[in-house]
Nucleic acid binder design. Structure first.
Length: 424
RNA sequence: GGAGAGAUGGCAGAGUGGUCGAAUGCGGCGGUCUUGAAAACCGUUGUACCGCGAGGUACCGGGGGUUCGAAUCCCUCUCUCUCCGCCA
């Protein structure tokens, strides 16, 4: 959520910047400014009426105590009109406030100046492509065939137990999952992130805090009886650790990492791109989250990108780094870098990580603030997060790229975590 | 699932209709003392909104009501805790 005061002070800037996200904000912004002016006027009037009311009430109290009941009752008579006015002011005020809030949550975050103009995926800026794309042997196959051949992942069994998009990992397939999770968490801990094991279901307030609610409800599984949502990413519970808090500036940045299963309804996504592990309703991911000082957040974004890059490098996967264009950057993000690894058997790039700076957009909803030494007024912190990493497509790429006629080779760094060096 | 208790400032915890944005203690910050520290003592210490400012308004879990006046009374919702049952 953008800051109301900021919009008030910089309406043209907001409209201009949002063009980069292909969002025409002119109408919303001007409506907000209009309504806000009315709102302020109403508040001034209401406050004045309330001040008068408070004064009279105090006087009445004093008169009663002095035993001047007659004067007190006379004073009472004066209050009814003021009371009526206050009621009207408050009703109007709430109505306007609600409208302003409805409009405010419709505005996406302002994109960073480095975000390229563009409509969709294909307009993303490729910053670098790293690593050799391996030459596979003649009989190389995509990961879903490898998964079946070595009995690593059973998609049909998942369909039986739950439904499509809920694979069953087994044997070395399951062990590989566990190894990757442990490897990613260990690397996070080494990089100074505190490990968190968060709840997998969250309440409405948390969903709102990170921006999934109210608009993206359909993307989350909803346990309606208890009104709880299954998390689409650990970002939600972890970032909400910092909801409604005022932090000490000297303790910034806060760094957390968390493994969680992630649940996504992703309604309406079918077709050839969703085969195997490419797109699932339940998957595993290790997330990194930071709460940062506004002046440091972009340096921290770079640091997080470097961390993710290190993970992919250690796994020996060919990858590329993208800067998302305005059309592809998410609603809440100011700047997002994506990592894609190359799936040699499928001959395509698969997104495995998204690292974003949300600046104060989430913080504003979360009421996540910090206080600078000696400064009385708290200010909004910046939040950042990134996948480090999402497992399914990493697994897909590992299986495909490392396949040999003898079996699938496990990357060196993972062997201590898997306990085996080959799947055969 | 059954029964009961409760929700007040960073924390603990008073406050049952007016002088309560709220005692007191702890914590935090500043100071005195000290070579330094501790102790002791003194002072200070919520957030948001409106206003150029003086200042004003709101907030004692959320919403509604009674009243000139509500942390305090009434209704309602949510959440938390305790005991019993069930269970990893």
């Amino acid at each position: 959520m953008l800051n109301l005061k900021f919009i008030q002070d910089n309406p043209d800037l907001v409209v201009e910047k949002l063009k980069r996200k292909n969002f025409d904000a002119s109408e919303i912004v001007s409506t907000i400014i209009n309504l806000n002016a009315q709102k302020n006027k109403l508040q001034a009037e209401a406050d004045q009426a309330k001040a008068e009311m408070n004064k009279i009430s105090k006087e009445i109290g004093m008169l009663f105590r002095e035993g001047k009941a007659e004067e007190a009752n006379a004073a009472k008579a004066r209050t009814s009109e003021i009371k009526e006015n206050i009621k009207n002011f408050d009703t109007d005020f709430s109505a306007i406030e609600e409208k302003v809030n409805d409009l405010l949550v419709q505005l996406p975050n302002l994109p960073h100046d480095s975000v390229p103009f563009g409509k969709a995926e294909e307009d993303n800026e490729i910053l670098k492509t790293v690593g050799e794309i391996p030459t596979l042997h003649e009989n190389a196959v995509p990961h879903w065939e490898l998964a079946a051949k070595y009995n690593l992942i059973d998609f049909e069994l998942g369909v039986k137990i739950t439904g499509a998009g809920f694979p069953v990992y087994r044997g070395k397939g399951a062990q590989l999952q566990r190894a990757l999770i442990n490897f990613f968490l260990a690397e996070g801990t080494l990089a100074g992130y505190e490990e968190i094991q968060p709840p997998l279901l969250v309440n409405e307030a948390s969903g709102f805090g990170t921006g999934q609610l109210p608009d993206k409800e359909g993307q989350m599984y909803h346990a309606t009886e208890d009104n709880l949502y299954l998390i689409p990413t650990a970002e939600v519970p972890v970032t909400n650790i910092y909801r409604d808090v005022i932090l000490d500036a000297k303790n910034l940045p806060y760094k957390n990492t968390a493994y969680s299963a992630c649940f996504r309804r992703e309604a309406g996504s079918y077709g050839k791109d969703v085969r195997g592990l490419n797109r699932l309703h339940q998957f595993d991911k290790v997330e990194i989250v930071q709460v940062a000082h506004p002046e440091k957040s972009y340096a921290i974004l770079d640091e997080m990108v470097a961390h993710v890059e290190g993970l992919i490098k250690k796994l020996g996967l060919p990858y590329r780094l993208l800067r998302l264009c305005g059309g592809d950057v998410s609603f809440a993000s100011a700047l997002t870098f994506d990592f894609e690894v190359y799936s040699t058997a499928q001959e395509k790039w698969l997104e495995v990580s998204s690292v974003s700076n949300f600046e104060s957009f989430q913080a504003n909803r979360l009421k996540l603030r910090f206080r600078e030494e000696g400064v009385k007024k708290p200010q909004l912190a910046h939040t950042l997060n990134g996948s480090a990493l999402a497992l399914p497509r990493i697994v897909a790429a590992l299986l495909e790229n490392n396949q040999t006629p003898e079996g699938i080779k496990i990357p060196e760094v993972l062997i201590p975590f898997t306990g085996f060096d080959m799947i055969n």
